[in-house]
Design a binder for these strands. Sequence first.
DNA 1: CCGGTTGATTACAACGTTGCAGCCGTCTGG
DNA 2: CCAGACGGCTGCAACGTTGTAATCAACCGG
Lengths: 337, 337
Amino acid sequence: MAATLRDVAALAGVSIKTVSNVVHDFQHIRPATRERVRAAIDELGYKPNISARSLRSGRTGVIGLALPELSLSYFAELADAIIQAAERRHLVVLLEQTGGGDRDREIAMLSSPRLQLTDGLIFSPLGLSTEDAALLNVGYPMVLLGERVFGGPVDHVTMHNVEASKAATLHLISRGRRRIAIIGAHEGEVVGSAVLRVQGYREALAEAGIPFDPALICNVGRWHRVDGAEAMRALIDTGVSFDAVFGLNDTLALGAMRVAQVAGLRVPEDVMFIGFDALDETKYSLPTLSTIDPGRDEIADTAVRLLVQRIEEGVTPPLPEVYLADYTVIDRESTAG
Amino acid sequence: MAATLRDVAALAGVSIKTVSNVVHDFQHIRPATRERVRAAIDELGYKPNISARSLRSGRTGVIGLALPELSLSYFAELADAIIQAAERRHLVVLLEQTGGGDRDREIAMLSSPRLQLTDGLIFSPLGLSTEDAALLNVGYPMVLLGERVFGGPVDHVTMHNVEASKAATLHLISRGRRRIAIIGAHEGEVVGSAVLRVQGYREALAEAGIPFDPALICNVGRWHRVDGAEAMRALIDTGVSFDAVFGLNDTLALGAMRVAQVAGLRVPEDVMFIGFDALDETKYSLPTLSTIDPGRDEIADTAVRLLVQRIEEGVTPPLPEVYLADYTVIDRESTAG
DNA sequence: CCGGTTGATTACAACGTTGCAGCCGTCTGG
DNA sequence: CCAGACGGCTGCAACGTTGTAATCAACCGG
């Protein structure tokens, strides 16, 4: 069916190795030969067989990306950015979904034969925790994303969660709010974005001399819109007073904001809202949502860069690198005033 | 590094072919032998080398998915569904983004060597049109999605665009609306979702005896939120009266709805809104957005099923199959009354 | 004019897997 | 008791590529 090196070689009247050399822009080839081979390649529509190349060279040009689920906008936008970053380095991305924080699936994924034809993995777990760090000692290049596991044996790209969260909270405080509810805490957890962001929140309160009120902390199961909505409804039902809401991600904030508005609260007059992630849709909600831009493109680009580095240098990281992306507070209508 | 069949064979004291047979659950193997081989496999942590297998067998277990961009929620949710459908059939998905309707990139993608290690492609173009149908005659299995190309040489999974759009429009009409604006038309285009959906809209108007008013048709460049927002602003600025808006996709409708609300219009009292796609977020906008559910999971599952069928039967489709998914009108607050 | 360098090309052997043909030994039916 | 079938296993060749070593001609300096 498809033309091979052998076919091209026969047509051009050279050896297959010469064709291979032409394909790879090897230096010492006579221009005449090069032209003849090029012509034959075009005529036959030759495309290198990646399986064979990969078998021979051990490289596939494919990197794996494992994340919880694309239907969460944050991960969709992250995947978008990573695919683009990979493309810039001539890599393609094989995408796996591990589901919404299923630890067992995430662990299974790490040794899945489906990753065999991958040169390395960018892994964004949601169910693992720091005690699983040893599991990340897999035999292939890997870059870790997120806030679930720290101190693991692999490069890690993440963000200044505590600082960013503190900045978000201080932003609300600077607008005069003192009863700031948190939507999206995870009860009993000791690791992950939720914990860090709550920590940043508490640091901000402490700095401003505002007492911490546990009644303002709303726990949720997952970080979907529906969870934000339900948490807000529950909060309102408790009758606790609040004048601002910090959604630990944008999706939660948007779900919560909607419920608040349905309940007759005016945003930002009665309640201010701020989210986290800088999703595209926060620019178009009503009102537009203030949020934290965690440097998504920077994270994507760095993750791919580090992975390529590991792939090229060999597997063992002498000292795993930790990269923290810059964040920015984006001030919009939901915190205007 | 990694264990091969040879290593396992040596450890188990059998030939590599026997190991291969065990791996493939070949029938005629003595239980004792099978056990011994299994033990050796476990001990060495053997994983088949997919490159080699693929070189030998011509199959990789990977399918390509080429779509415009994940940052459009519709495509993110579609990709989610397709990855899950593929996983059910033990396939992994290699994801390529072609950008927002760049015809040249889409064409280039079709012959990209990056697809070499793929058994087939699910392709959702946005820049091609029917005259490009011949380009789809590639040498590998392919399933086409979307409304850009009809009558091509490949299986096609799409939806009842005209009927669904007509149903959406009739839904607004049944609520008493007669000045229904369209957000998302593509000026001068003769192919694609926009054209079909406008056609359904016109059929509905005709059926209801409502005159068609070109002033109510708002053209946009792309189908992002910002385009919906800008189109709505432009529409309001023209001073044309309207009492309902049909966003040709949810993202447009949400962008437009926000601008309408900022302009002081009440939804649904002053203006009703309906979208198209049934994105998750339409359940949580304020008000919740009525929309058309185009049967996303059904589309995903069918696309993968057809692709697998083509892969297994060989490339040439005797008669390309066209599958039309069912749609449903979802009635929510934005059209209440 | 010759040894040595360089340029241009090639032969060969892998990479790890699987299809095929074939080899033994045992079992079955006539 | 024997032909043939069949179960259980093995050896070999091939898939298309690339790294290494080798070949051969041309060229250079002394």
